[in-house]
């Protein structure tokens, strides 16, 4: 469960987020909508610890994580540009987090292969990010985030780079991933149809405040 309590973010005297308070129950697929520049990405960055809020608290399963580093929060984050690691092959991208935690090579291989199979990217394991299409990159970014076995997944407009034909397939993939991994997902989108297809909780950011739609 995610709880945000009176989160405020100010920069250069401008208030971007003001008293954001919301509770997202576990295993919920929450979608967040709002106009461009209203602070949606900032909210995700505060949630995963990349920014410190000016004031307020972030609680995950009742534990205050506001002052914890990103690596201590157990949150998966897929940014809008997907941010695959340049120079690392798909296999290394997916195995990044488990390897960092000292997973044994055989177990690491199994986890990478299992995720690659789940996302249909087994044939891409030896490719570099430059050799992947938009849809393939998106699958790799998701597999990389899930390899760390997060409790919560933050998705910042993950489907924006996909064309219409691939989008419905990606929506189905996200639904399946959320159910199979029992994840709590917070998904930022501009697309009403995407929100309608995926969301079980609909949030809207208006003038720095969060409203439950």
């Amino acid at each position: 469960m995610i709880q945000l309590e009176q989160l405020t973010w100010k920069v250069s005297g401008r208030t971007i987020l003001e008293g954001v308070t919301v509770a997202i129950p576990a295993n919920t697929y929450a979608v967040l909508m709002g106009s461009t520049g209203c602070g949606k990405t900032t909210l995700l960055e505060i949630l995963c610890g990349l920014r410190q809020p000016t004031s307020g608290r972030v609680l995950l399963d009742g534990v205050d994580v506001t002052d914890l580093e990103p690596r201590e929060r157990g949150i998966g984050y897929v940014p809008q540009d997907l941010a695959l690691f340049p120079g690392l092959r798909v296999r290394e991208q997916i195995g990044f987090a488990p390897k960092l935690r000292g997973m044994a090579p055989e177990e690491l291989k199994q986890r990478v292969n299992r995720l690659a199979e789940q996302f249909g990217i087994t044939h891409l394991l030896d490719r570099l990010p430059d050799m992947l299409s938009g849809g393939e990159k998106q699958r790799v970014a998701l597999a990389r985030a899930l390899a760390a076995q997060p409790k919560l997944l933050l998705l910042d407009e993950p489907l924006s780079a996909l064309d219409e034909s691939m989008r419905s397939e990606a929506v189905a993939l996200l639904q399946r991933v959320q159910q199979e991994h029992s994840l709590t997902v917070l998904h930022v989108t501009h697309s009403s149809s995407e929100a309608a297809a995926l969301g079980t909780l609909h949030l809207r950011m208006v003038a720095g405040r969060l409203e439950v739609a």
Binding site: G49, L50, P70, R71, A83, F85, P86, F96, L100
Partner: peptide, 19 residues
């Protein structure tokens, strides 16, 4: 010229800033 975003993602995947 390099985006800081991959490093941000690495932090969420368990890296320290140095890693």
């Amino acid at each position: 010229h390099l985006s800081a975003r991959p490093e941000d993602v690495a932090l969420t995947l368990g890296c320290t800033r140095f890693q």
